[in-house]
């Protein structure tokens, strides 16, 4: 009894076995107000449920579902926000607009292509790094090796995007360096192109890939690799037959996370992209600034993007995650 009190960090409780507290919380607990409100509520089963579940459930329903629900509702209205003299009615027109105009669905397709390409590129680039930290670095050095990878991510999205400009601008580091060593006469235009956008996206999101991959690869027992090697499997076979299948969970969650993040990136395309790389978020944003009666269209488009993105991520998870590992 004394022992459990010590674990609970309750120095005052040590002297008593019945609830008789003497410190700050105790004074509240022993006060008449507490006994008749919270104290009484905790005593009754219904009160306990309300106390435990009330606020969380209200919050979850109001603010985790509420906004999406309102967006869905407004996407089916002809006018919003309400204007005097204009009757708003139920319609599917806002969704139909999307399929009618290539001006709208081209950016969505572009967004998907970019997000997919960026996800694939991130996977290819980050996988060896995650493998190196998880399997080749000695256990005591791992947290340091990881920390070094984490440092850039304490800089915000905008600062990282901005720093990519320093590298790729016409008078940025790469162009100046190439000119100094005489490889080029005039700067290669890299900024405001698909290249700079892709480069920036990968730079922005590689951490989301790194952590899931790392934790998946780290869990693979080293004996499996040793056993395979003893049985004559070369490095490539070991990678293909053991490491890759066993890190599948990490690949699936990393890729989904990166893909969904990429799709929703808003500021980076605006800063690093050019006129040819207008992404869907920017298209949607147009409906909410300026002419405000386009809100329903924007809401419909946002939902189209959300649903297609989730479906794409779901299909990917099913395709990659569905197969059972063949290595063991």
């Amino acid at each position: 009894m004394v022992n459990s009190n010590t674990i609970a960090g309750d120095a005052a409780g040590r002297s008593a076995s019945i609830p008789k507290y003497s410190t700050g919380i105790a004074r509240i607990v022993n006060s008449a107000i507490y006994r008749h409100t919270l104290g009484a509520a905790v005593e009754s089963p219904i009160g306990r449920v309300i106390l435990l579940a009330g606020v969380p459930l209200i919050w979850l329903v109001m603010l985790h579902i509420g906004p999406i629900y309102q967006m869905l509702k407004i996407s089916l209205l002809s006018h919003y926000p309400a204007q005097p003299g204009v009757e708003s009615h139920f319609t599917f027109d806002n969704y139909a607009i999307f399929f009618r105009e290539s001006l709208y669905f081209t950016p969505l397709i572009k967004s998907f292509i970019f997000a997919t390409a960026a996800t694939a590129a991130t996977l290819v680039v980050v996988y060896p790094v995650a493998y190196y930290v998880a399997k080749i670095v000695k256990p005591e050095g791992r947290s340091k090796a990881l920390l070094l990878l984490l440092v850039p991510f304490w800089a915000g999205e905008l600062i990282r995007t901005f720093s990519v400009i320093m590298l790729l601008a016409n008078r940025g580091a790469v162009n100046v360096l190439l000119r100094e060593i005489g490889l080029i006469d005039r700067p290669i235009p890299m900024l405001y192109t698909s290249f700079s956008l892709g480069f920036g996206l990968v730079y922005l999101i590689c951490l989301y890939m790194l952590l899931p991959l790392y934790s998946a690869i780290e869990k693979i027992p080293g004996q499996y690799l040793d056993a395979a090697a003893d049985l004559g499997a070369g490095p490539f076979t070991r990678f293909r037959r053991i490491i890759l299948p066993l890190s599948k969970d990490g690949i699936v969650s990393g890729c989904s996370l990166v893909f969904l993040t990429c799709i929703g990136v808003f500021a980076t395309p605006m800063l690093l992209g050019g006129p040819n790389t207008v992404m869907f978020p920017e298209t949607i944003s147009g409906f909410f600034h300026g002419a405000s009666d386009k809100w329903p269209v924007g809401a419909a488009f946002a939902l189209i993007m959300l649903v297609t993105a989730l479906i794409a991520a779901g299909i990917f998870m099913r395709l990659v995650g569905g197969k059972k590992g063949s290595a063991i």
Partner: peptide, 27 residues
């Protein structure tokens, strides 16, 4: 279900979350 609901905002792309909240506060 409660856990999935709690995680929902982390899965919804940032842009869509922002727009849905903009609509929500206006309603």
């Amino acid at each position: 279900i409660i856990f999935a609901l709690a995680c929902l905002p982390a899965v919804v792309p940032g842009m869509i979350s922002a727009i849905s909240l903009r609509i929500f506060i206006s309603t």
